[in-house]
């Protein structure tokens, strides 16, 4: 029974991981791609690890998988924040159909103040 639940969780995780990769290909710019890859890959990988926990039961392997879930939940958003901030500072523009970019406006404002 627990094995079946484990397999179902792993399949769900694979579906989410796949959609994250598909978003990486289809979405237009680096920020939108980070959106899809961060969210889907976080949950997808966590579901796969959770499936491994159900498949193995709570033992040496299961506990390691649970710790990995915790670490992925903590580090994946932080990594996305670091990449998006760095790419904005490096000058990558938003996709041309974007609605607004308050961050660019504020950064240009502070740069002008430093110049004058």
């Amino acid at each position: 029974m627990t094995e079946t639940i484990g397999f179902i969780l792993i399949v769900c995780g694979l579906i989410f991981d796949f959609s994250g990769c598909l978003g990486l290909v289809r979405l237009p710019d680096v920020y939108n791609r980070l959106q899809s890859s961060t969210k889907c890959v976080t949950l997808g990988t966590c579901l796969i690890l959770l499936g491994a926990v159900f498949y193995n039961g709570i033992n040496a392997v299961g506990i390691k998988a649970i710790l990995c879930i915790w670490f992925i939940f903590m580090t994946s958003p932080t990594a996305a924040h670091a990449i998006s901030r760095a790419s904005h500072k490096a000058g990558y523009k938003l996709w041309k159909g974007s609605a607004c970019d308050k961050y660019l406006e504020d950064r240009q404002g502070s740069l002008k103040k430093e110049d004058s």
């Binding site: 579906i15 989410f16 959609s19 994250g20 598909l22 978003g23 289809r26 979405l27 237009p28 710019d29 920020y31 939108n32 959106q35 899809s36 969210k39 889907c40 976080t42 949950l43 997808g44 938003l94 996709w95 159909g97 974007s98 609605a99 607004c100 970019d101 308050k102 961050y103 660019l104 504020d106």
Partner: peptide, 26 residues
């Protein structure tokens, strides 16, 4: 919220027209 986020991304990525309207807000 995480599950809702994933279904949201799944919908946007699989939709043929890519229904996105991105931007950075404060």
């Amino acid at each position: 919220c995480v599950f809702k986020a994933n279904l949201d991304v799944l919908y946007r990525v699989l939709h043929p027209d890519l229904p996105i309207n991105p931007g950075i807000v404060k």
